[in-house]
Design a protein around this nucleic acid. Structure first.
Lengths: 197, 197
DNA sequence: GTCTATAAGACGATAGAC
DNA sequence: GTCTATCGTCTTATAGAC
């Protein structure tokens, strides 16, 4: 049951479990984290977890699909926005910074732990990831073709940008005092080198 | 026993095991790959593996330390080279491309699977990784200060460059026909934007 | 909603025959 | 050097008392 307290939000037991699991999956990996480990961290016994979740797999899939949906919805909003593609690219960098700072543990699972999803959920996840990358590619390509960005190989530039954005969570982990605005600004400068005219 | 055949190199049984394990660790992760899985892939029974290796952990640590040493030695060679730092940076990009194409499965383990190393080996690995990054930082910093590169935040630029180079293995996995020279050239262009004068 | 007890099986690794 | 048999431990998950 969800309980609200004035000035703060008390998480439901299920959300506590998911949050704790995310932190442990991030540190040790999904397979190396047992239900006993998660329970112990929460001060309870492993079987008690099953009163709140159906399986260990459900924890992972809900975490990953939640973040994937955040990215999908963010991309939809960017696509609806008016203005040049170069401005949309800046919005995408900000989207990554925002989601990463909001859900850094869950975001950290996007890179390596999704392989432990069972077949059906894995397919759903990959579908969403590929659609996101395709949208990103379209915007980047248009921006380069219109001469807003340096002329480089689109695929390799996309790869480089996404590689950096995917690893942002480790940057935020090492620099917890990071200022969101400054980070966004520097990231845009490094990842989206404007064409000199 | 190692056997040489004219025109080809026959791997020792131990190297066969390491190579097969690397491929499976890459695809499913260290923890999710059992000794039985590895043995089956090689057409043998799990206990037979122990005639060639001492433990599953030994396979992982030898793979990771081998690649780490490749990077350490490559960096030493770059540091010994004469010429401007901007040229040294280009050599580093080429170093990553070379090692990644030569040992792509083992390289893929550098990003996520090193966390499964046992304490002592993990510390050795981290020490080497940190030393490598420190050398990279020194060269990058000098290059920016001397005005060879665009003026950007050194730490964030380093983070971005290493993020992309670390993920190169997945690029090579998806583009197997990739031309090494072209890849190096494009990487330099994207990662090391020269200052316009 | 939490517990204890336990099922049913996978794991890494060893012993010892051949 | 490979096998079969097996040890001891850990795993996810369930049953049922409270």
């Amino acid at each position: 049951m969800t309980v609200r307290i004035i000035g703060a939000m008390s998480l439901s037991r299920k959300d506590q479990i998911k949050q704790t699991a995310a932190k442990m999956f991030r540190k040790r990996g999904y397979q190396a984290t047992s239900m006993r480990d998660i329970a112990k961290e929460l001060g309870m016994e492993a079987p008690s977890l099953y009163n709140h979740i159906r399986s260990k797999q459900q924890i992972l899939s809900e975490l990953l699909l939640m973040v994937a949906d955040e990215f999908t919805q963010g991309m939809a909003k960017v696509k609806r926005s008016v203005g040049p593609e170069s401005a949309q690219l800046e919005q995408l960098v900000k989207l990554h910074v925002d989601i990463t700072m909001e859900h850094s543990d869950a975001v950290s699972l996007l890179t390596g732990e999704w392989v432990h999803l069972e077949k059906e959920v894995a397919e759903e996840f990959i579908k969403k990831r590929d659609a996101y990358e395709q949208d990103f590619r379209t915007i980047l390509k248009a921006s380069i073709e219109k001469g807003h960005l340096e002329k480089v190989d689109v695929e390799l530039a996309l790869f480089s940008i996404l590689s950096t954005l995917r690893w942002l969570y480790s940057w935020c982990g090492r620099n917890p005092e990071v200022n969101r605005r400054k980070l966004e600004k520097q990231m845009v400068k490094i990842l989206l080198p404007r064409k000199k005219s």
